[in-house]
Design a protein around this nucleic acid. Structure first.
Lengths: 116, 116
DNA sequence: CTTATATATTCGTATACTATAATATAGCTC
DNA sequence: GAGCTATATTATAGTATACGAATATATAAG
């Protein structure tokens, strides 16, 4: 493949990953699983300042991970693609498996240590 | 959930996402789908300096997305969890669908423009 | 047109990331 | 041990990102 094209694709791919690479944006995405919500709803749910939520939503919007629609004074957001949620879940599973593995090691170590 | 615990989990989750959030690391992960490889193999495949590949592998290693084993002078890397690959693929599909959608819009616009 | 509310944007700053070059370490072979 | 190759680490400079506070915009109601 043309290296420039390849790099362009990988840059875009990374941009999408970057959109997920922040704890608050993950909280927002998780919150949106329940369905469409307004900025204020999410700010309340997550106990975050409105400006913070709005800033992060702007990033998610720019990268088309969420869509928004205005209804009067409210702007409703929703997850743009169900695959985003699935990726969220997969990566959380990776994390959980890592933690489980560490836990095992830790327990094994305690056994050895206590039998000395 | 205890907000501190929640934040800790989301921080870790974001750390894993961050590991994917760089074009070169995505190239590396993609390269490793073919199977175990050494640092040098990957540097050759991707036409990147050895130090660059090694640095990015260090990040992937710290976050346990890849495992490594030494065999003599070589260090072989492999993807730690197949779910990482699946997340890679899902997010690439998200990107592809976005591009397709943009393409459609673009074509639709051209039609309108040319009929004026 | 003014006020009130919801949302978005801007700005300054602190922090974190990436890239490159140089250097260091580890394990062979002789 | 000397020299060679593979890999890792460090230093640093440049860039990007996140956060908080303040400000701006948009809509609805009066």
């Amino acid at each position: 493949m043309d290296p420039e094209v390849r790099d362009g694709i990988y840059r875009m791919h990374a941009q999408i990953c970057k959109a997920l690479a922040d704890p608050k944006r993950l909280l927002i995405i998780n919150d949106l699983r329940e369905g469409e919500k307004t900025v204020g709803d999410m700010a309340d749910d997550l106990e975050l300042p409105q400006a913070t939520v709005s800033q992060h939503l702007a990033i998610l919007r720019q990268r088309s991970l969420v869509y928004s629609r205005r209804d009067g004074v409210h702007v409703y957001y929703r997850i743009a693609n169900e695959k985003v949620t699935r990726a969220f879940d997969l990566l959380r599973e990776v994390m959980a498996e890592q933690m489980a593995k560490e836990q095992e090691l830790h327990n094994a170590y305690k056994e050895v240590a206590s039998s000395e």
